[in-house]
């Protein structure tokens, strides 16, 4: 019971302190909407292009909403040594890091539904398979958060966290099939796409929203789940190796 009290309070502190603040809202919500507008105008097909754009916009919202704050705040707390307080608390490192990433995961789950709500007023979303969308959003949020965690434990300065995040995030917009089908990419780049977890999440969303998935859903879910476990385990290993020296 005591460790869950610690878990809950770490999670709530981060939500209040970081995730409901303007910088995160701008990255997780305003930025994806700006991208939507750009692609919407570029598509030139009016409202009928919305279902094509929606999976990509939802994925960007999750990716930027989760990674923007987590990588920076963990690095910041480590620099100012307040993270040591958490390491000294009598809870396991696994539970501690789940609490630290919980806020980002929650924000990542909520943020893609902002463009969905807007799209629902402008386009017919009755054919969307929500039973696929919801677990896909949860898994993309988890995998993106753990990607942010991996970045946080790989750097020591806040500016490095920001630079490193963008090094990952911006190429993913083009490589993971968010707005351009992977098959339209040059053949020598495609292996890179398949090495990125977001590709599988975006594929589920494309399938659930407009039936345009290129891989079986089961395979997408399994690979996404495997990425979640591998990224979390690798981040914990790095924390033990680099932060508990």
């Amino acid at each position: 019971m005591k460790r869950w009290t610690a878990f809950w309070n770490i999670l709530m502190k981060d939500v209040r302190t970081y995730y409901l603040k303007p910088p995160n809202i701008s990255w997780g919500m305003v930025f994806p909407l700006a991208w939507t507008g750009m692609f919407f105008i570029r598509a030139g097909r009016g409202l009928e292009s919305i279902p094509d754009l929606l999976p990509g916009v939802m994925t960007i919202a999750i990716l930027f909403g989760t990674t923007s704050v987590l990588a920076v705040t963990v690095t910041f707390e480590k620099r100012q040594r307040s993270f040591d307080r958490l390491l000294l608390a009598p809870i396991s490192l696994e539970l501690l890091m789940l609490a630290k990433t919980g806020g980002a995961i929650l924000f990542g789950i909520v943020s893609p539904f902002v463009p969905v709500v807007i799209a629902s007023f402008l386009a017919d979303l009755s054919g969307v398979e929500w039973s696929l969308v919801v677990p896909a959003v949860i898994l993309i949020a988890i995998v993106s958060t753990f990607l942010g965690l991996l970045i946080a434990v790989s750097v020591s300065q806040v500016f490095e966290a920001q630079t490193f995040s963008n090094f990952f995030r911006f190429p993913m917009i083009f490589l993971c099939g968010l707005f351009f089908p992977i098959m339209s990419l040059p053949a020598y780049i495609r292996p890179l796409s398949y090495a990125l977890p977001v590709t599988y999440g975006a594929d589920i969303l494309h399938g659930a929203v407009r039936g345009a998935n290129i891989m079986p859903f089961a395979m997408d879910f399994v690979i996404l789940g495997a990425f979640c476990l591998a990224l979390f385990a690798f981040s914990l290993r790095n924390i033990r190796r680099k932060w508990i020296v």
């Binding site: 460790r3 610690a6 309070n9 770490i10 502190k13 958490l86 009598p90 809870i91």
Partner: peptide
């Protein structure tokens, strides 16, 4: 965090 919030948070870390 305020002084009070900091103390409460540290107490929560110990359950």
């Amino acid at each position: 965090l305020t002084g009070f919030e900091n103390l409460c948070f540290c107490g929560a870390l110990y359950g």
